[in-house]
């Protein structure tokens, strides 16, 4: 199962020369800055920036688009309703409801913000190996237990996905077709139940195996990544840039 956005031939190494922590912090600062911007032209600029960085990283357009569409599908309801619920000058009327220009502008801003943030997030963090991400989060002093949980979960998602596919294959071999009926719900219920039962057994074996190897509740996060002066320089330049954006947003 593929978690990262890149596959082997699109992976361009230029982002990998920086410390993963820098990428995390940049993504966070970028998101925080973007949500606080109020001016539409600046939002366009921000979206352009994240598109450019996605292009530089060599993200494949189709994969990016597919994931963006998934998010858009979720927001669409919200966005259709907004022009009608924000009070303001009437733009057009639909029956007894009237859409306001102010509402439409809000919609535009939300779309710009959401897309800019998600694209940047996928560029900077989606291209990290999950394990590297876990280590970077650990180095940022997040609670150790959470990091452990994250690393273990990432490790076993792949394994359990194989298990899931075996079970689905067995169902298909018995001509199972999902439909909207009791049989499907029962089969899926049993499928999930079986998945959980096997996971529990697996986790007991894992714990036993880890105890045999002297697991004392700590995973040692060994990484070759080091925060370099270059990373600090870039972080300060970027912070300055974000501040500038916020300032111009305020002044304009």
């Amino acid at each position: 199962m593929q978690l990262t956005v890149t596959d082997d031939h699109t992976r361009s190494g230029w982002l990998d020369q920086f410390d993963p922590r820098l990428r995390l912090l940049t993504a966070l600062l970028f998101a925080l800055t973007t949500v606080s911007l109020q001016q539409t032209p600046l939002l366009l600029l921000v979206l352009a920036a994240s598109l450019l960085s996605a292009l530089f990283t060599g993200l494949t357009g189709s994969l990016l688009l597919k994931r963006l569409l998934a998010m858009e599908g979720f927001m669409i309801l919200l966005l259709i309703m907004l022009p009608f619920s924000v009070p303001g000058d009437s733009l057009f009327t639909l029956g007894s409801f009237s859409a306001s220009t102010q509402g439409l502008e809000r919609v535009l801003q939300i779309v710009l913000k959401a897309n800019a943030i998600v694209i940047m997030l996928m560029t900077l963090i989606g291209t990290l190996e999950p394990v590297v991400l876990g280590h970077a989060l650990g180095q940022l002093r997040l609670p150790e237990k959470l990091i452990h949980l994250f690393l273990f979960t990432v490790r076993y998602i792949g394994v359990l996905f194989d298990e899931y596919q075996r079970l689905r294959m067995a169902m298909r071999a018995r001509a199972f077709v999902a439909g909207s009926n009791r049989h499907t719900w029962r089969s899926f219920g049993w499928l999930i139940g079986m998945l959980l039962v096997r996971s529990l057994e697996r986790s007991q074996r894992i714990l036993a195996a880890m105890k045999c190897r002297g697991f004392n509740g700590r995973l040692y996060l060994i990484t070759t990544e080091h925060w370099q002066r270059r990373d600090s320089v870039i972080l300060s330049i970027l912070s300055l840039f974000f501040l500038l954006l916020l300032l111009s947003d305020h002044l304009l």
Binding site: L149, F152, L160, L196, S199, R202, S203, L207, N216
Partner: peptide
């Protein structure tokens, strides 16, 4: 507690798959 992290993680992964 640390004893239960593997268990919680594997079950979390199972829920993610489900």
């Amino acid at each position: 507690d640390f004893e239960r992290i593997p268990q919680a993680a594997v079950l979390a992964a199972a829920f993610f798959i489900a």
